[in-house]
């Protein structure tokens, strides 16, 4: 499923709202989540999961192909932890 398929699915379920409106709403949801992560905020969606931003220290890594050392700078990465309900639903399917 892509974002546009997600929008279509919502339009079908929520009869009465124009696609354009649903599209803007879906974009607002993801934009807000990106904004929160940029501010280093944690996002907690009950029944779905949590998004957190993990900070990584700089380290010396290696190019696995050539074995050459490369220094990796400190970075921040988004991390998703699936919620219990969803984890169980996925596992049952």
């Amino acid at each position: 499923m892509t974002k546009s398929q997600l929008i279509d699915a919502i339009v079908q379920k929520k009869a009465g709202l124009p696609r354009k409106t649903v599209e803007q709403a879906v974009n607002a949801v993801f934009d807000e989540m990106v904004g929160a992560m940029k501010r280093g905020e944690r996002i907690e969606i009950r029944g779905f999961g949590n998004f957190t931003v993990r900070k990584y220290k700089p380290y010396t890594g290696r190019n696995p192909k050539t074995g050459q050392s490369v220094s990796v700078e400190a970075k921040q990465m988004p991390f998703f932890k699936v919620g219990k309900d969803l984890r169980e639903r996925i596992n049952k399917s």
């Binding site: 499923m1 997600l6 699915a9 919502i10 379920k13 929520k14 709202l17 649903v22 709403a25 879906v26 949801v29 969606i45 029944g47 779905f48 969803l86 639903r89 996925i90 049952k92 399917s93």
Partner: peptide, 14 residues
């Protein structure tokens, strides 16, 4: 709408 976003994602992933 917000509820539908996550419900649809969940159904699809399940």
């Amino acid at each position: 709408l917000v509820e539908l976003v996550f419900d649809t994602l969940k159904d699809n992933l399940a």
